[in-house]
């Protein structure tokens, strides 16, 4: 009896020590930085925060970020679904090579991702002369920002869907087809409902990265005020001008995006798990 109690207390102590250690790590590395952003953003009061966010350059940066995301996320979503259909539902030669290539952008660091587009479309790049003759600007313009964003967010949807669709197999699709449904109808009525949570999960992560990308976009943007500054680049410019309150006010919008992202991600995970059960 006494021994059992002793062991219980030992177990309680071990659990308390474990909780303390883990919460210290998460508190110091995750909660504290988030708290600093909010504290700095509102250090001048609510009004100053609102003024920093609503100021024309900040508004322009927000609009550019939304526009780039609105282009990049749907394109990579369509690609992700197509790639998953080909790679998960069929077996063919070169399949494993293609699987590796789809993941390749994750292995390339953001700055290098920006650099490669400069090498193709920049002033002395492959198509630089051709573009300049026609007065077109890719690098130091919105097209370059879209391309760099497409590159860094390339695998998100595909990598979520490929394992999911491989696991689900294709019996249900075969049944639908043998009952006379067309290919597209089979996709929209059978496949899409089965993959919806995985698809949504991929889109959420893709969206967060598209809105928040910094390194790759920084290389191709040229930092032209009111023209090629996305919201993360606008934060950088403000910060380097020692305009800390405004920098953190804009950063708090992006931090809010991150918080919303992890909330949505948790909800989608729970829904997906419930559907699978």
């Amino acid at each position: 009896m006494k021994r059992g109690k002793g062991r219980n207390r030992k177990g309680w102590l071990a659990n308390a020590a474990l909780c303390a250690a883990a919460l210290t790590v998460i508190g110091a590395l995750v909660v504290l930085p988030l708290g600093v952003i909010l504290a700095e953003a509102f250090s001048g009061g609510w009004r100053l925060w609102a003024a920093s966010v609503a100021e024309p350059e900040a508004r322009g940066a927000i609009l550019l970020t939304l526009a780039v995301t609105a282009l990049a996320v749907p394109l990579n979503t369509v690609f992700g679904v197509a790639a998953a259909w080909a790679l998960a539902k069929f077996r063919f030669r070169g399949r494993s090579l293609l699987l590796t290539l789809v993941d390749l952008p994750f292995a390339v660091s953001p700055v290098i991702a920006g650099l490669i587009f400069v090498l193709v479309f920049g002033r002395s790049g492959w198509f630089g002369g051709w573009l300049a003759e026609r007065g077109l600007k890719v690098i130091f313009g919105t097209p370059g920002i879209v391309l760099a964003t497409l590159f860094v967010t390339f695998p998100f949807v595909a990598r979520e869907l490929i394992p999911l669709m491989s696991e689900q197999g294709s019996e249900e699709e075969q049944a639908a087809l043998s009952l006379g449904a067309s290919g597209w109808k089979t996709f929209f009525k059978v496949t899409l409902p089965n993959i919806k949570w995985g698809l949504l999960y991929g889109i959420i992560l893709c969206n967060a990265r598209a809105m928040g990308e910094f390194g790759a976009v920084s290389v191709v943007s040229g930092h032209i005020r009111g023209e090629t500054l996305t919201l993360p680049l606008h934060v950088e410019v403000l910060y380097n001008e020692y305009n800390f309150t405004a920098a953190f006010a804009c950063a708090s919008l992006l931090a809010g995006l991150a918080v919303v992202t992890i909330i949505l991600k948790t909800v989608v995970e729970l829904k997906g798990a419930r559907d699978a059960a």
Binding site: V30, P33, G212, P232, V235, A251, L254
Partner: peptide, 9 residues
């Protein structure tokens, strides 16, 4: 959160 947070932030 560190994964979802934009790196500049």
């Amino acid at each position: 959160l560190p994964f979802a947070m934009p790196t500049a932030v």
